[in-house]
């Protein structure tokens, strides 16, 4: 469930088609992933998923797999 939501958030924030957010999506594969959109991503994930992402993790959310893993940790 989270996977789908995360991908939807990423698709909206980065303004790319949902199908382009694959499991291997990362800063390398999404050209729109700049620093401003990265901060928007954090805020959108927190709002959509009802979580609080710790400051020390903000810089680590650089691939879809890492986002999924960190979101999962934040929900514990």
């Amino acid at each position: 469930m989270d996977s789908k939501k995360i991908k939807q958030v990423m698709s909206i924030v980065f303004d790319v088609p949902l199908e382009s957010i694959t499991d291997d999506a990362s800063t390398d594969t999404i050209p729109n992933w700049d620093s401003l959109r990265h901060l928007n991503l954090i805020l959108a994930l927190e709002e959509e998923l009802g979580i609080s992402i710790p400051n020390e993790e903000v810089g680590n959310l650089i691939t879809y797999k890492l986002i999924e893993l960190i979101v999962h940790e934040c929900k514990k």
Partner: peptide, 15 residues
């Protein structure tokens, strides 16, 4: 931890 491995790979220039 998997997160450490994923991060290490993501932060490696050869990915």
């Amino acid at each position: 931890p998997e997160k450490v491995k994923l991060l290490a790979a993501a932060q490696t220039p050869l990915r």
